[in-house]
Amino acid sequence: MYQKSQTTKKLLLIGGGHSHAIVLRSHINNPLPNINLSLISENLETPYSGMLPGHIAGFYTHDECHINLQHLTNLAGAKFYINRVINLDLNNNRVFCENLPPIDFDILSIDIGSIPASLTVTGAEEYAIAAKPVKRLLAEWEKLCNEIQDYQSSVRIGIVGGGAGGVELALAMQAKLTNERELEIHLYNRDRNLMSSYDYSIQKLMKKVLLRRNIKLHLGETVSKLEKKSKQGNIDKINLTCESGLSLECDRIFWVTQASAPQWLTTTGLTTDKKGFILINNKLQSVSHPHIFASGDIATMVNHPHPKAGVFAVRQGKPLFNNLRRYIFGETLKSYIPQRDYLSLIGTGDGKAVANRGNFTLPPSRLLWFWKDWIDRKFMQQFK
């Protein structure tokens, strides 16, 4: 049995990612004792990554694939600061935001996700639409869907990044727009293989699926420059150039490259890996500051590194909540060991999905999509 903590502590959550959404929901059901709980997030809602491709393909509404953080924090009796964090003062336990006075904390947890890497490519920051923040991605996608009826010619979309995110995005966009207007989707990847962190069996299968859907693949191509080429009405045409000299004019370019960490983390004093992600131990604690926890894409487990995927952020939510509770009571924290092989259900945008776990892969089927849909809706139902 837990003993009640004698002093009130300030627990501050930075970021409204999957893990923190689960912490808030767990606090509603089983309140942490003597805690002033607060959340800082740039947005009122957080997207659930498992349903985003389905939303882009038209299977889910906006509300069905977003968690309402305002609603969660209200139910949890927590303060909600809608703002952007720009730095930490770990000597005095303070968080600095863009438009707020410093916020004090006793215990801090960080779950801010990641941002796409390589926006340093010439013209990318100005002309590419990054996969994150998702709010801007969805706004640009809706704008494109509305503009298509004014296009005088075929629509050409470039997607940079051939990981699972880029592949799913290409299939979802193709499924949504294929009947609207003559459409070309070009997928660029610097590696010769798609989805390089996955087994070869699913790499081979997804390549076949993409080609069957007439998505143009440019493998082994590194994008080196984006620039505005011409204008058709109110629509800018963007020229994409690769190191090989390959060049293509596109109506929109979406950037879905490997994950990277926000720059401000490098100035905080937290120990990070070479890419700037917070290094954490098996208890989900910072290896340099034990009163600071981290989870999701922004964290790298020292002993159990794994891909930056939403499935891990979801699974870290409950262990994070339990260890926050134990830390408050001064009890021994429990280790979280992520699965080495995990099930991936990847939608193909046409009411089907493929399944992969390790070297076991199943081809697209409607049954797998129904299974994925059931899992995703069940996850979201706990926040309604």
Rank of each mutant, 00 (worst) to 15 (best):
L345S: 05
Q339I: 00
P102M: 05
L343R: 05
E125W: 00
L210C: 11
L37P: 13
T73R: 09
K229W: 11
F293V: 13
Q285R: 06
S230E: 09
K4R: 03
Y60T: 10
P290G: 02
N281Y: 04
T178N: 14
T267G: 03
I115S: 04
Y151D: 13
L320D: 02
L177C: 14
Y342V: 14
K372N: 00
D63K: 13
L270Y: 02
S295I: 02
F277W: 08
G113T: 03
D251Q: 06
Y48T: 04
S5D: 00
K229A: 14
L88Y: 15
D273E: 06
K207T: 14
I86Q: 12
L100A: 10
P116Y: 06
R377V: 11
Y127P: 02
Y327D: 07
L219F: 11
G166F: 05
K308C: 09
R213G: 02
H289A: 14
K143G: 01
F96H: 06
K176I: 04
W371D: 01
I159Q: 04
Q258G: 12
N282E: 10
Y81I: 04
Q203E: 05
V302P: 07
R25H: 02
T73D: 03
L183Q: 10
A124P: 03
I337T: 12
H71C: 02
S5I: 10
K4H: 08
M195N: 09
H306S: 00
V223I: 13
A355C: 06
G310W: 01
V302S: 07
L246K: 11
E243C: 00
L138S: 08
